[in-house]
Design a protein around this nucleic acid. Structure first.
Lengths: 247, 247
DNA sequence: CGGCGATTTGATTCTAGTCAACCCTAGTGG
DNA sequence: CCACTAGGGTTGACTAGAATCAAATCGCCG
């Protein structure tokens, strides 16, 4: 969950930074594009946007115009029902796309909130459609990203529908560390960017239950928990909670 | 949930039936296509497949090659974790697409099982990508369908993460009748094609809880429940359960 | 230093899960 | 035609796990 977001250097980078030179290009939209096509994508993804911690990138109801690729920082997305209930539907880190929900009705259906000072690449959607008609690699990669989101959501449904609190938290932590590891961070230490309440909302638990479960993992020697700093002491035991291996 | 599936007439239709003459064209992939483009889509969606009740259209792990549009009948999709837990992720009726999950890894990630004798249109995916590069209406409609699936999944996450049993079942029934109504069926009477256990799996409840909740709705005068035949007696009360209006 | 939001922990309640028995209904075969 | 059976469904008694309510503590920021 550490990103380079908090190094002041980033702020001084030129406003335009090309996909072709982005260190996330192996994780983000450009996967599988050759040099020529990368250059064309660059011309599309021309602008960046800073989003300060706590600010929203977009809200439910906002007109949908662009997708956003997280460049640095960390986001949550949440939907809410008429009666005020709300549900965190995901946490997004560098290289992940935000805004796919907006395509269906031309309006966003969830809020995207920055959990730390963040920077996103703005991808005008109409232009993306246009470009992806021109070269199939981009088209295919974009479809894969949408499909992956669907598969991810099904995984969350499995978690919410059939796992107990400990299993949910274990699965959540393993998922986070896996994604962090893919970005070059440690697999065993992380700093949570979200509150217990946000974790709880994502996992379908109350914040007290999240807190208790962290404490239990600490007691069991699985984790070292210091507020939002987490160290995984026993990866195997965590994994076995998800698998149900030792139940 | 009544479709024309059980009229023997259908079986005698020619094997090829065009999207352009399909009565689902306002719900399915062809939305927004003009006549010329419809004809081109027809050439792509050339084959049908019958799936008998209880049979699988595809299984998790199967190679992904095609999407499927439900023409008649009713399906469920379910994912399962390594340890055997499984979760129904959706129920699909006429005009809805199956198989979107497969794009992400070129393998399906869930099982699609027919809950009644069904017929699907086979949409070869590579060809769909090709055609949607050629005309933007198809491309856009396809993207909308994927996005709608993501939005739908977020709704289910909200349901699983924050609703109580009664609210879940009420939301489920309202969603079903809404979709049936869009297909010309009654908004107040339906026949469930799935077992209590399958409903429970979808809603994150045990089958006993589903059964008890049906009974309670019956006692409260909200529903008339005769096995799988449901009649909605008090739509407003059902709606208010979802909204939390009268809690 | 004071205050606030976030977190932890304890005590209690309540919802849904578990286990078990029984009941329908449709389909089977004598 | 009817008894038999199996699978799905209902209901009851009890339990477990998470929610709720409440209080105390921590850590950060002005």
């Amino acid at each position: 969950m550490n990103t380079t977001a908090d190094t002041p250097k980033l702020r001084l980078e030129p406003f335009k930074v090309a996909c072709s030179s982005c260190n996330l290009r192996e994780l983000c939209l450009p996967v599988g594009l050759n040099r020529e096509n990368l250059d064309r994508l660059d011309s599309l993804v021309a602008t960046r946007r800073q989003v300060a911690r706590g600010d929203t990138l977009f809200r439910a109801g906002d007109e949908f115009q662009s997708l956003y690729a997280v460049r640095t920082g960390f986001f949550k997305t949440c939907v809410s029902s008429e009666d005020g209930r709300d549900q965190v539907t995901g946490f997004q880190m560098a290289g992940e796309l935000l805004g796919l929900d907006g395509i269906s009705t031309d309006n966003h259906t969830c809020d995207a909130v920055a959990l730390e000072d963040s920077q996103v690449c703005v991808i005008p959607y109409e232009q993306l459609e246009g470009l992806s008609r021109e070269f199939s690699e981009l088209q295919h990669q974009f479809h894969k990203i949408m499909s992956r989101e669907i598969v991810r959501d099904h995984g969350v449904m499995l978690l919410l529908g059939s796992m107990r609190a400990e299993e949910r938290l274990a699965a959540f932590l393993l998922n986070l560390t896996q994604r962090l590891q893919a970005r070059g961070f440690s697999a065993s230490a992380l700093i949570l960017r979200m509150t217990r309440e946000e974790i709880g909302s994502y996992l379908g638990l109350k914040l007290e239950t999240v807190s208790r479960t962290f404490s239990k993992f600490q007691d069991d020697g699985i984790l070292d928990v210091k507020q939002r700093q987490i160290r995984i002491l026993d990866q195997d035991k965590l994994q076995s909670l998800v698998n149900g291996t030792n139940c």
